[in-house]
């Protein structure tokens, strides 16, 4: 059954409090599925938040930072605001709080940056790739997540998604047609 926006905030906060990576990933999966179906910005942002938080709580380099406790407390507080705004159907304030959460996590990532691509960009790419693998087009997945098509193609190319779904028209048949055109 689909989760409501307020329930999602509550579940993310609970998984964060318990440092439960498995639960956080399950929330992430559900949010991605919901994003594919409803194409809603708020659900997508919850997918992104749960993805990056699953990374934060699974990597000591984040939560052993000096200011980590402070930053994570702020995230929990913002998740409470998200829950409350969702209940009030105040979607503009919900969006603002979700963006503040991402900003707080981005700051944690910047404090100990290891890769050119930050944790948020990586999360966007991962979600876009999942949407594309699920059957949403490359352009729609790229549009929803704000990911560049090029990066998404490269990422998808490293996965097995094109082997998991067999296409009706074979490479042999396409070659036959193509030879005809270029004859």
């Amino acid at each position: 059954m689909a989760l409501s926006l307020s329930e999602t905030a509550l579940l993310i906060a609970s998984a964060l409090r318990d440092r439960d990576v498995h639960a956080m990933r399950k929330i992430n999966d559900r949010c991605i599925d919901e994003t594919a179906v409803k194409f809603g910005q708020h659900t997508y942002l919850y997918a992104l938040i749960s993805y990056v938080l699953s990374k934060v709580i699974s990597k000591p380099r984040y939560y052993t930072q000096k200011k980590a406790a402070e930053s994570l407390a702020k995230v929990v507080q913002l998740l409470r605001s998200c829950e409350s705004f969702s209940k009030q159907a105040d979607y503009e304030s919900l969006l603002a709080s979700q963006n503040k959460i991402l900003l707080a996590i981005e700051k944690m990532d910047d404090a100990d940056r290891r890769f050119v691509k930050g944790i948020i960009s990586k999360g966007k790419l991962k979600i876009a790739s999942t949407l594309y693998a699920q059957g949403i087009s490359l352009g729609s997945a790229s549009e929803m997540t704000g990911t560049d098509k090029r990066e998404l193609l490269l990422y998808a190319g490293q996965t097995m998604m094109f082997d998991r779904l067999k296409e009706k028209k074979s490479i042999h048949e396409r070659m036959k047609d193509l030879r005809e055109i270029f004859s």
Binding site: V37, K38, I136, S137, L138, G139, S140, S142
Partner: peptide
């Protein structure tokens, strides 16, 4: 719910 599969570019 209708699935939004294609984007304008496609």
């Amino acid at each position: 719910t209708p699935l939004r599969l294609l984007q304008e570019g496609e």
